[in-house]
């Protein structure tokens, strides 16, 4: 039986997510009331309202839920596997790698933004990146080694993206890729949802199915193995899950940073720090965070809509700094 505290937390986050999802259906150039939004969702009311809600705002809302959940789940899984609170996909360069895969696909004409080839290119490159990271740093890498390896890979894929932009055939293509890289859920359709959903579903299933093995791993590899856990299989499954999930998300929405780092951290103390119990509430909290960020970008008055990747980074960087300060304080106390 799941812990009662976990059930309460999950239920609370679901309720918050529901409210944010309905708010997300309301927000846009055409203002809709709560009743019009909910009515539109169920096909009731003015046909124009129904069209706006179902065809424009619903896919965007679904993508926010799906991508937020997937990024947070990936962070929780990687942190559990690497036994390290800094092991989020973005710190490790996976989204950068996926973005490079997608950009390369678009620039070479092998994939367009509405084809299934795009997530495959993004997933393939994310897989290469995560495998390279594990190879470089090792599974039990200390924080410094991990960050250095992640920095090296992020820089490499950043440079490769710049190179691709540099060699882009036209200024229009350069601008298109640059805006796409900022991360956005604007103007997304059900086509985007259907491109990402199968990969995200498989990735989420893999990461959720293996989560209980991470608890034993928190006492070291010997305890995990002697508890009957196949660590090599766990590593492979986690890496594939993270690469598939993050790759699919980046393919449809660009690079949205820091969700995978921030959310598991916020959830961990609420579930007794057990790495297996972080996953489910982190998924829902990740969806909540991205829904909230996507509402914020539509509420802030500006000539052009802010990109959601910019907002999550603006939230995430101070959090990351706070994490560094906290760890420094802990180190000083220990000394």
């Amino acid at each position: 039986m799941p812990d009662a505290r976990d059930i309460r937390l999950t239920a609370g986050l679901c309720a918050l997510g529901l409210a944010l999802a309905i708010l997300s259906l309301r927000l846009g150039p055409v203002g809709l009331s709560w009743g019009q939004s909910i009515g539109g969702l169920f096909g009731v009311g003015d046909p124009i309202d129904v069209l706006i809600v179902r065809e424009l705002r619903l896919p965007r809302t679904l993508l926010a839920i799906m991508i937020g959940a997937m990024l947070a789940l990936s962070g929780a899984a990687l942190q559990g596997l690497m036994r390290n609170p800094l092991a989020a996909p973005d710190i490790l360069g996976a989204p950068g790698a996926a973005a490079f895969g997608a950009v390369l696909g678009i620039a070479t004409g092998l994939a367009d933004a509405l084809s299934f080839t795009l997530p495959l290119a993004a997933i393939g490159m994310a897989l290469i990146s995560v495998a390279a990271l594990m190879g470089l740093a090792g599974r039990q890498a200390n924080i410094v080694t991990l960050l250095l390896a992640g920095l090296a890979l992020s820089s490499l894929f950043g440079a490769l993206i710049s190179l691709t932009l540099n060699l882009a055939p036209s200024l229009y293509a350069t601008l298109e890729i640059t805006f796409w890289l900022l991360g956005s859920l604007e103007d997304r359709s059900f086509r985007h949802v259907s491109i990402a959903a199968p990969f995200v579903a498989v990735a989420a299933w893999i990461l959720l199915a293996t989560r209980h093995q991470l608890t034993a791993l928190s006492l070291g590899e010997d305890v995990a193995t002697s508890s009957g856990i196949d660590l090599q299989r766990l590593s492979r499954m986690t890496l594939f899950g993270v690469a598939a999930g993050v790759g699919a998300c980046v393919a449809v929405a660009g690079a949205i940073g820091f969700v995978g780092l921030v959310v598991p951290h916020l959830i961990r103390p609420l579930v007794g720090h057990d790495p297996a119990r972080v996953h489910v509430p982190a998924m829902i909290a990740g969806a909540d965070l991205l829904l909230a960020a996507d509402c914020i970008v539509r509420l802030i008055p500006a000539n052009t809509e802010l990109h959601i990747g910019v907002v999550t980074s603006l939230i995430g960087v101070p959090f990351f700094i706070a994490l560094v300060v906290d760890r420094r304080r802990q180190a000083e106390v220990a000394a």
Binding site: P2, D3, H212, A216, G228, I229, V271, G272, D274, R277
Partner: peptide
């Protein structure tokens, strides 16, 4: 854990 249990799933 070897018996199918573990924290949060007794």
């Amino acid at each position: 854990i070897p018996h199918g249990g573990g924290p949060g799933r007794e």
